[in-house]
Design a protein around this nucleic acid. Sequence first.
RNA 1: CGGGAUGUAGCGUAGUCCGGUCAUCGCGCCUGGUUUGGGACCAGGAGGUCGCAAGUUCGAAUCUUGCCAUCCCGACCA
Length: 492
Amino acid sequence: MANAIPSRSENYSEWYNEIVKRADLAENSAVRGCMVIKPYGYSIWEKMQRALDDMFKETGHTNAYFPLFVPKSLFEAEEKNAEGFAKECAVVTHYRLKADPNKPGKLIADPDSKLEEELIVRPTSEAVIWNTYKNWIQSYRNLPILINQWANVVRWEMRTRLFLRTAEFLWQEGHTAHATSDEAMAETRQMLEVYARFAEEWMGVPVIKGYKTPNERFAGAEETLCIEAMMQDGKALQAGTSHFLGQNFAKAFDVKFQSKAGVLEYVWGTSWGVSTRLMGALVMAHSDDAGLILPPKLAPIQVVIVPIYRSDEQLAQISDKVKEIMSELRKKGISVKFDDSDANKPGWKFAEYELRGVPVRLAMGARDLENGTVEVARRDTKEKNTVALEGIVAYIEELLTEIQQNIYKRALAFRESNTYKVDDYEEFKRMLDAKGGFILAHWDGTSETEEKIKEETKATIRCIPFDAPHEEGKCILTGKPSSQRVLFARAY
RNA sequence: CGGGAUGUAGCGUAGUCCGGUCAUCGCGCCUGGUUUGGGACCAGGAGGUCGCAAGUUCGAAUCUUGCCAUCCCGACCA
């Protein structure tokens, strides 16, 4: 038997790492800070991609692809963006290797192949894309441009963690160009809504939508909107961001259009993205000490069937029955796996599929054959029921829907019971240390205060929630007046 | 980039202080058999440049030096 996974309460980050590795989602690679996403993990990511991509298409976007490399001169153009990302960029300086004259069998970068202009491996693609948009836009008739790309980016992080922070990660980045500020702002909000809907309806992860403070804004943006989710250790995870870029990139890359009135104006932009980090959110939001818990909508295998048999003859009988059920389930679009391998015993398989988060497990043995039943186990609650085969497909369909809703409700209830209103700084600190979670508190609106609180408590303002009611109060640190509460938490 | 630690089979490890039948054990893997309703058992078997490179020595996993990599704690961050 495999060693037990460390429990969540014991060591949350070790628990997380073990789940990711043992559920076969990803592993560390030979490349520092970079992971290998394994087939099972990648299947989940593909399902996420599919769902998101459909939503992007529904909102009028199309996919395109831009280069991995950004010439340094382009990268520099938008000053704030460049400054924000400069310290985590991989830089290509040479285009050729040659045999090392001093060490046989080794290679060195050929000094004669030094690039005239260094290439930056994109940490994000605004620069290349806006430089391209410049050529595409002359008139208001060319607008809006609504493009998304699925890509990899590199941000040279000091400390990495599987999915949550890797030096290279996969994501999508939407980049849109508009004739008016209002339209760009509407786009920014629309895409945040798309992300929120995806997180809640597909991942089963409730999120809080809000504005980032200027401190936490994307480098080069006028406004950053985000969704914040709570993980089971009470920490916050930024799950997606949507940026209103104003005319910053248009000005940096000189992207102008002639309006209906014949006036030359700078284009308004947005960008928005979610990454493989969502995989981390998925794991940390729902899973338990027995392993992964996947929402049915994103589970590569929704139903697994385990036969329990004593003889080949018995297995054959069970298989016949199972195949009928499988074909019915598949007709309903449910993905099913029949694990009839003889390599492991049923008990081993039960544990294995729990580890991998398969939402529903069916077990069928001689007893069931006799009674016309099957044992149905749900992963989220670990409840087991013996159910009549008659009507089993409808039963499972309903169960999958129910599991999808249940894990969302559970996560929501967890977040609500770990969200507090606090009006006193000492209590604020005490709550953070004792319970973590989200804290709604008053803030005087200054960066200095935000910085100071971060320094002293490691908590940051995750967002200024859209739905924060107007409420007179005093800043927990300075006592200065405030008109609404903001969301504080320690974050990933 | 500062502080700490670690590199031994696919994974996890013992041995390193005190150099000499020391390459240990568990999981996994292969073969055969018995098993199969919550991580089976027995028997046999395969698998190693002891992170890399120099050095000391009759002899190095063990001592010395250099390098590389990874992890943890900070600083930085989607």
